[in-house]
Nucleic acid binder design. Structure first.
Length: 786
DNA sequence: ACATAACAGTTTTTT
DNA sequence: ACTGTTATGT
């Protein structure tokens, strides 16, 4: 080792404990880091990357670091930036899904059946496809619940099982197998992939094309993985292939924090890793830098009840701390009120609202908390629940953009065909589909044909034809400007020409809010600047709830599920609903493994806390409409009593019953459920740093690691685009995508320009007035800059 | 074709 | 309680 790199190395290791230093500097090859909560694993990962680059002179483009959430990826990139500045160029830091999506995009031409840019289908889209598959197979949705089918399909994909290899051992799996097959065909015909496909297809591609695999193996000579216990079989197989043959694979995980079994994750991958790489170096990170000793002792006592685990010797230098507080509330409203009261007390002691988090097992539990927080003006930010992009209005506008990007997307087309209502009902839709099938066209192509081919042959009724061709004309216009307009401009056109605002904003408060959400989405699109539509849609598809959480968000309490809490930390943690049936969840109580996972979930919640933990449960919990008596969670009993403050549970219960009888009368006052201010804004910030490349800078020449698509879609040379030639009589003066201004109609975009005899006929989409056909000689159109 | 009413299934966790 | 789907009436 040379002198200068040694000194750099020393700097790098400043402030790391012995185990951390060992992990950072261990020689390349397979490395397994078992990292307890709060043991600085992100720090170790980032320092390891820095070490590879500084001490071992590994080029950044030879390094890939994968995480499970964009937020984790972003944080890692931020820290690396702070550590090393611009030497990061070419480093791959991203989620499994985003990283695979990028690979698949680059290799689209090698994917059987996929033409051009595929889109990513989310769960809603998937369910639509499953329903369609069931219909095609003449199976009853009632008997074969689409959600169940989808779960079976997803599990198969997570296990690297294709429809052909799917083992049908009984009737239900026989049906699943067939549905899986049709579902997969439907995905391909929609030119779409679901989340699982991103991983699965990457592995399949690598297995199919060793030459392509080799290309990526050569590029990614060092692979690092965060939250390794959360990998599923497909992800594990992907890593194995990528890391070979050198096997420079550095994984960090903690089996006690494995909480995604239901999603196919298998912490036994940690064991598989050890047997697959017998030479793997093992590093244990056991010092906790986050929590007080009391919190850590409580967490250890809880997790010790799980069988078949290797006990870690977690320790901290933060001695003592305050006892864990366990409280019983009468019902969920009182529970939330207790949270608010406690936060108020803590604020008198110098804590801020932003220091506090309220965690719960199910999203449904957030409602009561939100209502009380609104009523008491306690600021909060909510992670998840009705996700911003899960809202109807957002899904609508995204569906428009998706159809424009990928006309093969029949699921999205279905959604927008009559949204807003434009007279295309079931019957008209059927006529369109029949005609399209007869002509061998996709429905979207058929629409455009109906609108643009004056000699079109059809037997569609005149009324139906009119509404269809009207819509086809709009679609044609959007498709024409697609490659020249920014996402925001496309969105404006769509909103304007469909009068979407009128449709969604019915004058009610809710309508106002819906429109505000659309405008929020618009500003997201504006922030994306000149990112191509494909990339914008991909980012929209791959954001998660935790991603919406930003640290510098204004000072507000964080409300989130225990699942979403993993990887985060807060000075003060409240966990609500510590009741049998909730935590542990009723669906996980009979199975020992699932129960163990519930316990890990509780463990994850506890270990998020730095200073204070409050555990709440209720006497009466309301489920669907009516309330029933709740039993305190068995997990509470796992905590040694000397770590807990407060009297015996039974005594508190009596108190709360008598309190409740005095004031439970007036509690049905409803609180308006609007004003979920913060997370829209947070969502915005998704588009800021690290994940996104800067398109305003001059482009490097394409190299491995680059997304080669930029705006234009594969296989489409756009013959209509003609460069402006202001002189010649027979050359059109306007080109598609040209921005123009009209004295009366305002600003717009040229959709088409045809030379007709001596004049030029220009079709312009005006932002305010919609589509107009104008004669260039009269219209006096003024060209305006981009 | 669309608006309204009735109804069913839903709620575990998510990239 | 809530949402999305289906039946019914205009």
């Amino acid at each position: 080792m040379t002198e200068p790199s040694l000194s750099k190395e020393t700097n790098l290791l400043d402030g790391l404990n012995t185990a951390q230093q060992h992990a950072v500097t261990v020689e390349p090859g397979p490395v397994l880091v078992l990292a307890g909560p709060g043991s600085g694993k992100t720090r170790v990962l980032t320092s390891r990357i820095a070490y590879l680059m500084h001490a071992l002179d590994v080029a950044p483009w030879h390094i890939m670091a994968v995480t499970f959430t964009n937020k984790a990826a972003r944080e890692m990139a931020h820290r690396l930036e702070a550590l090393m500045g611009e030497r990061l160029r070419g480093l791959t830091v991203g989620t499994f899904h985003a990283t695979c999506a990028r690979i698949l995009r680059r290799e689209t031409r090698h994917l059987l059946g996929y033409a051009g840019d595929f889109v990513i289908f989310d769960r809603d889209d998937q369910l639509q496809l499953v329903k369609q598959a069931l219909a095609e197979l003449d199976l009853d949705e009632k008997k074969f619940a689409p959600a169940r089918m989808l779960h079976g399909i997803s599990s198969a994909k997570n296990e690297l099982v294709t429809p052909e290899k799917y083992a049908a051992s009984n009737y239900i799996s026989e049906v699943t197998k067939r549905v899986y097959g049709v579902y997969q065909e439907l995905l391909v015909s929609n030119n779409a992939m679901d989340f699982d496909d991103l991983l699965l297809n990457t592995v399949l591609l690598f297995d199919d094309r060793p030459d392509i695999l080799q290309k990526y193996q050569q590029q990614y000579q060092h692979v690092l993985v965060d939250e390794f216990q959360d990998t599923n079989t497909t992800q594990y197989e992907l890593l194995k292939r990528l890391a070979a043959p050198q096997n420079n694979i550095f994984v960090v995980g903690d089996s006690d924090q494995s909480i995604y079994k239901w999603r196919g994750a298998d912490f036994r991958n940690i064991n598989r890793f050890r047997s697959h790489y017998p030479e793997a170096k093992l590093v244990l990170l056991e010092q906790n830098y986050r929590s007080t000793q009391i919190i850590l002792d409580a967490a250890k006592a809880v997790i010790r009840h799980n069988a078949d685990r290797v006990d870690k010797e977690l320790f901290t230098e933060r001695e003592d701390g305050t006892p864990i507080v366990v409280k019983e509330a009468y019902n969920e409203t009182e529970e939330a009120e207790m949270v608010v009261d406690t936060i108020h007390d803590l604020m008198l002691k110098g804590y801020r609202a932003g220091d506090c988090a309220v965690m719960y097992r199910t999203n449904a539990q957030s409602r009561a908390v939100e209502e009380v927080f609104l009523r008491t003006s306690m600021p909060y930010k909510l992670v998840g629940a009705t996700r911003f992009y899960g809202r109807r209005e957002i899904r609508d506008v995204v569906a428009y953009l998706r159809v424009i990007h990928n006309p093969a997307d029949a699921v999205s087309l279905n959604r927008i065909l009559n949204t807003p209502p434009r007279g295309i009902g079931a019957k008209t839709q059927q006529e369109l589909e029949d005609w399209a099938r007869k002509k061998g066209l996709q429905p979207a192509e058929a629409l455009v044909r109906l609108a643009t081919d004056p000699d079109v042959q059809h037997r569609i009724g005149s009324r139906a034809f009119r509404v269809l061709s009207d819509f086809g004309e709009l679609l044609h216009a959007w498709l024409t400007v697609r490659d020249d307009a920014t996402v925001a401009e496309l969105l404006d056109l769509v909103l304007e020409q469909t009068a979407y605002r009128n449709y969604i904003n019915d004058g009610t408060e809710e309508g106002e809010e819906r429109w505000a959400n659309v405008m929020e989405f618009r500003s997201v699109a504006t922030l994306a600047e000149d990112a191509p539509l494909s990339e914008f849609l991909e980012q929209v598809a791959l954001v998660s709830d935790v991603d919406t959480l930003s640290d510098e968000e204004n000072n507000a309490v964080t409300l989130l599920t225990l699942h979403a809490a993993k990887g985060l930390e807060f000075p003060v943690v409240f966990i609500t609903g510590l009741e049998e049936g909730i935590l542990p969840h009723s669906r996980s109580m009979d199975d020992m493994e699932e129960l163990a996972e519930e316990r890990r979930l509780f463990y994850v919640g506890l270990t998020r806390a730095k200073d204070h933990v409050y555990l709440l449960h209720t006497f009466r919990r309301t489920f669907f409409g009516d309330a029933s008596v709740a039993t305190p969670s068995r997990f509470l009993g796992d905590i040694p009593i000397d770590l807990v403050s407060g009297g015996a549970i039974s005594q508190r219960r009596e108190e709360s019953v008598s309190r409740a009888s005095s004031w439970s009368w007036d509690r049905n006052r409803s609180v308006p459920r609007s004003g979920r201010q913060s997370y829209n804004r947070a969502w915005n910030e998704e588009y800021q740093p690290s994940d996104r490349r800067d398109y305003t800078k001059p482009q490097r020449t394409a190299q491995a690691g680059d997304d080669v698509h930029r705006g234009a879609n594969a296989g489409d040379g756009d013959p209509q685009t003609t460069k402006a030639a202001p002189n010649g009589k027979h050359e059109p003066q306007f080109r598609t995508g040209q921005r123009v201004r009209h004295a009366k109609f305002g600003d717009g975009i040229v959709i088409e320009s045809k030379v007709t005899g001596t004049d030029e006929e220009v079709t312009v989409a005006f932002k305010k007035e919609g589509l107009k056909k104008l004669a260039a000689s009269f219209a006096n159109l003024e060209e305006i800059g981009d």
